[in-house]
């Protein structure tokens, strides 16, 4: 996983609430057995017309937003299915930070597994930041200090310390958990005694 530290970009603003994972990446692209290559189909239905031509009105089709690394969106972002294809598509497009006032749980945790930072801010602050998108000005995100710097201002954001550490160091969850193999084994042995039906033997 890529380490996340600081990020500077003109943000793209998508002022839609309840953006679901079907919108982020429709199901016809879930038939892949790979994690990569999904970026071109990100927001497919909003991005292309029936003939596969780019829709000019859509923000990610416009300069400079087609190179945005930061996406600002309406609340309840990433609701719907558990598909990790949604963060994979964002990542493949180049977006490594999303800013919204709330996220669906599974999407939120999927982001961290892929080096994407989902930031939660109040609606008011989001409106303020969206002005930078409108004016095509850069903002920067500093994960270490947990702040977004825009113009002469900065906003602090909250993040779970463990998740932060994993992002900063690009840590692999599985490797961390496997370090606790003893504890897992212990648990399993007790389980065999306490609830023998679980292992069905």
């Amino acid at each position: 996983m890529q380490k996340f530290n600081t990020l500077k970009s003109i943000p793209a603003y998508l002022p839609i609430v309840n953006i679901d994972t079907d919108m982020i990446i429709p199901k016809q692209f879930l038939k892949t057995i790979k994690r990569t290559g999904l970026g071109k189909n990100l927001f497919f239905e909003m991005r292309y017309d029936d003939n596969g031509k780019e829709i000019n009105d859509f923000v990610l089709n416009q300069e400079p937003f087609n190179n945005s690394k930061i996406l600002i969106a309406g609340n309840n972002f990433g609701c719907g299915s558990s598909r990790e294809h949604a963060p994979w598509a964002l990542l493949d497009f180049g977006i490594t930070c999303v800013i919204s006032s709330s996220y669906a749980d599974i999407f939120y945790s999927n982001c961290f597994k892929n080096g994407i930072l989902p930031i939660i801010l109040e609606e008011e602050k989001i409106k303020e930041l969206s002005e930078y998108a409108n004016r095509k000005e850069e903002i920067s995100v500093d994960l270490n200090d947990q702040k977004i710097i825009y113009g002469n201002n900065e906003i602090k954001f909250e993040i779970d310390p463990f998740k932060k550490k994993c992002l900063l160091e690009g840590l692999d969850d599985i490797a961390i958990s496997l370090k606790k193999s003893d504890k897992i084994e212990n648990f399993e042995n007790q389980l065999k005694d306490k609830k023998p039906w679980i292992f069905n033997d």
Binding site: S81, E84, I106, S109
Partner: peptide, 10 residues
């Protein structure tokens, strides 16, 4: 509960 693919691997 539902989980993502990285979690499936985990």
């Amino acid at each position: 509960f539902g989980i993502g693919t990285s979690e499936v691997e985990h």
